[in-house]
Design a protein around this nucleic acid. Structure first.
Length: 758
DNA sequence: GCGCCCATAATTTTT
DNA sequence: TTATGGGCGC
């Protein structure tokens, strides 16, 4: 069979068109389960094998390492060695590569370090100190996200202040340049910088742009609906010469608007590229007809979308199960036991099943149920490997050796490793002030202390010795780097820093920390074949850009586990059986998303993503009563569920009870209690299945709810104030109050001792 | 400089 | 409810 036939075999008409339309801009709008990845890989295979395009001229960008790896693997299976020279990678990895190669043209050193969230916060705190801004009033996180939004929209430090349109942005506008200067001093870039700096490089250095434009004749972007403004402009620049840009995405699966993903990039593609050809992939090969119908019904409630109709030739499949449970404990128990039932009855295995939820906080109760009823599970998300304290500590040591200017690593080492013993806030502040005055890195100050060279940082005694030791440590490790392998270097680093000894001396409760350090060592060992300096650089780069997904895939060889996952993280996956739990107002849609129609639509898309992960069976559940932050509140079924046509639903246990949002003063709200045992509810106690619940008369509490904006109130600690706004949370309220002396506070009506004044 | 205790806050998180 | 960070006391 000719190559062309092989590549096009089994594709439907639209898919074929998407694969063979290689010239000019192409927008592929790919519904869930429509063979998007297949189209993308086959298209590249077609370019290489049929059109005989040099792989060096083909670029494919994705958002995750996992997607990049999958694309590469599938391509290799299709065309074998022809993929050599092909560029497949995440946006960030691609940009990092460009900057390592050509960044010097815009003042970025070749060995820059990539800063993660924690590093950014450490730098931001320093910036706030430099500006004498109170970090309590101006939360480092919040300022960072404002700056991040700016960077994602292509706004530089110089431009930001001029564009500020609120007091908050004005503050951010003052901080941004200082933050940026510190990053530069540390020889570091944050994630947003990778994109923005690459964009700036390409738009200010014509020769560099020419080179990349010339090289990449064919450009592909996966998950195009998730691109932000900078990514969009970057792609547009790269594709400007050849115009062979193929973007694939689904606006209905855009769930990262809060990360500045700009849904307009896909909605407006045809306007931006007038010659663009749009291909709709509407046939779903993944899910049963009922699931597809449910998804279609839900998503069609959105107004901001590109019209498309999902359809499938798959069988109807079983009805969609919608259930109300008493509380999240019952819900979790049902889910776990239902999975066990499906496994017993067949033909399902635990790993065919996934439980999806809106927030990570919901996973705990599910985990507990899995443990209690003996269902093996795999939790996705949670604390990532690279976010573990000990892993970050060791990474900080490695980073400082690699890039001695790395101030965030330096601070981390002082705070968390034996090298920092005896060095306190005072000394660090003095050193930082000195570094700022001399426009150099803190480590340079340590070096000055070793050599006794002027100008000396104003630190003496024990702290000075400690700082000098750090400089000696860095210099010593750098010296050995050239004559050992990376693993020997890693071991020497743990030894000389005293870090491993510190963990071991901490005893058994730190045993898994040692374990994690060993795990990190085994990752490092993968780079042993490289020269140590190169190995270190490559390892650090990949550690900075790798997400947890890739890590856990490494270890997820056991296939007999059910998956617990957030709806966000579930995008791109599929499972025969899917449970969506917590389908309630204020959870899904999340309470924080109810302010604007756009956010609400994004929540609906999130629900849509969840539904469309299911191939055969879909369970949606909500509860009567949910405990949030230790408060019991009555829940209302999510409005999203109501848009699923009743005839494809099997509804069980749904009561018509709908309590008013706020309990009336003479409360007849019902308090429920576990009966008969266990009393009290103890963790680890078992045999608590099948308990019955009986209503008990209400008592106590309840007082103090029913506030309205404008109410004058007083609080024993904060004094007098006025209610600014009220958010109803089932039977409680979150009240925002402006106090005369104490400022604005958010308080829970049921907990805080707020009294109405008149 | 270190460590404990209490106040505070609390979505989602591809990189 | 839980996690984290800052402040205060030693």
């Amino acid at each position: 069979m000719p190559v062309e036939e092989t590549i096009l075999a089994g594709l439907n008409a639209q898919q074929r068109e998407a694969v063979t339309t290689t010239e000019g801009p192409v927008l592929i709008v790919a519904g869930p389960g429509s063979g998007k990845t297949r189209v993308l890989t086959h298209r590249i295979a077609y370019l290489l094998s049929v059109r005989h395009i040099d792989p060096h001229q083909v670029l494919a960008v994705t958002f995750t390492n996992k997607a990049a790896k999958e694309m590469r693997d599938r391509l290799e299976r299709l065309v074998g060695a022809q993929i050599n020279g092909l560029t497949v990678g995440t946006f960030h990895a691609f940009c990092a590569r460009v900057l390592r190669r050509d960044g010097e043209r815009v003042g970025i050193a070749q060995d820059f370090t990539i800063y993660d969230d924690a590093d950014q916060i450490s730098v931001m705190k320093q910036a706030l100190r430099d500006l004498n801004l109170d970090p309590k009033q101006y939360g480092p996180r919040t300022i960072l996200s404002t700056i991040s939004a700016g960077k994602s929209n292509g706004v530089t430090a110089d431009e930001f202040a001029g564009l500020a349109s609120s007091y908050w942005e004005e503050i951010a506008g003052r901080v941004y340049p200082v933050y940026q200067r510190l990053l530069r001093l540390h020889n570091a870039l944050d994630f947003d910088d990778l994109l923005l700096m690459t964009f700036l490089l390409l738009t200010t250095r014509q020769d560099v742009l020419d080179r990349y434009q010339h090289r990449y004749r064919y450009i592909h972007v996966d998950e195009y609906q998730d691109t932000n403004h900078v990514q969009y402009r970057l792609v547009k620049e790269l594709a400007a010469k050849h115009q062979n840009l193929c973007v694939v995405g689904d606006p209905d699966q855009s769930i990262y608007g809060w990360r500045q993903a700009d849904i307009r990039n896909i909605l407006d593609f045809e306007r931006d590229f007038p010659k663009a050809k749009t291909i709709l992939l509407e046939q779903n090969y993944r899910s049963s007809r009922r699931i597809v119908d449910a998804a279609q019904a839900v998503i069609s409630m959105n107004t901001q979308r590109k019209q498309k109709h999902l359809m499938t030739e798959n069988a109807d499949g079983p009805a969609i199960s919608v259930r109300e449970h008493y509380d999240e404990g019952q819900e979790a128990q049902f889910v776990v036991q239902e999975i066990q039932r499906l496994v017993t009855v067949g033909p399902y295995r635990p790993n065919d099943c996934a439980v999806m939820y809106r927030t990570n906080a919901q996973s705990r109760i599910l985990e507990e149920a899995c443990i209690r009823f003996g269902l093996p599970y795999q939790l996705i998300g949670g604390t990532r490997f690279y976010e573990r304290k000990e892993v970050k500590d060791v990474l900080a040591l490695l980073r400082l050796v690699h890039n001695p200017s790395d101030g965030a690593a330096f601070e981390r080492i002082i705070d968390n490793t034996p090298l920092g013993r005896g060095i306190g806030k005072q000394s660090v502040a003095a050193l930082n002030a000195w570094a700022r005055a001399h426009n150099t890195a803190a480590v340079a100050g340590c070096r000055a202390l070793v050599e006794g060279m002027e100008p000396l940082p104003p630190v003496t005694g024990r702290p000075a010795t400690g700082l000098a030791d750090i400089a000696r440590f860095v210099a010593g490790m750098r010296a050995t780097l050239h004559d050992t392998g990376i693993v020997a270097f890693f071991d020497a680093l743990l030894e000389r820093s005293g870090y491993l000894r510190m963990l071991e001396e901490a005893g058994i409760d730190e045993a898994d920390r040692v374990e994690n350090v060993n795990e990190l060592r085994s990752v490092v060992a993968d780079y042993e074949m490289l020269e140590a300096p190169q190995a270190l650089a490559t390892f650090l780069e990949e550690a900075a850009l790798v997400s947890d997904q890739d890590m856990y895939n490494r270890t997820a060889d056991d296939t007999e586990k059910a998956t617990l996952i957030t709806l966000h993280a579930a995008k791109g996956l599929e499972f025969p059986v899917v449970f969506i739990v917590g389908a309630e107002e204020n959870i899904l849609p999340h309470s924080r998303s109810q302010e604007s129609a756009a956010e609400l639509e994004e929540e609906r898309r999130l629900f849509f993503v969840g539904i469309t992960r299911a191939k055969e069976r879909l369970y949606i559940s909500h509860v009567f009563k949910r405990t949030v932050w230790g408060n019991e509140q009555y829940a209302t079924r999510s409005r999203f569920v109501d848009s699923i046509p009743p005839d494809i639903i099997e509804e069980i246990g749904s009561s018509t009870r709908r309590l008013p949002a706020v309990s009336p003063p003479q409360t007849n709200a019902t308090r429920w209690e576990t009966h008969p045992q266990p009393l009290p509810h103890r963790e680890g106690s078992n045999g608590h299945a099948g308990q019955t619940r009986v209503p008990l008369p209400a008592s106590g509490g309840g007082q103090g709810v029913g506030f309205r904006a404008g109410d004058r109130v007083s609080h024993p600690k904060f004094g007098d104030g006025a209610v600014v706004s009220v958010r109803d949370l089932g039977d409680d309220q979150e009240v925002t109050i402006a106090f005369v002396g104490a400022g604005v506070k958010k308080l829970m009506a049921s907990l805080a001792r707020i009294e109405k004044r008149r």
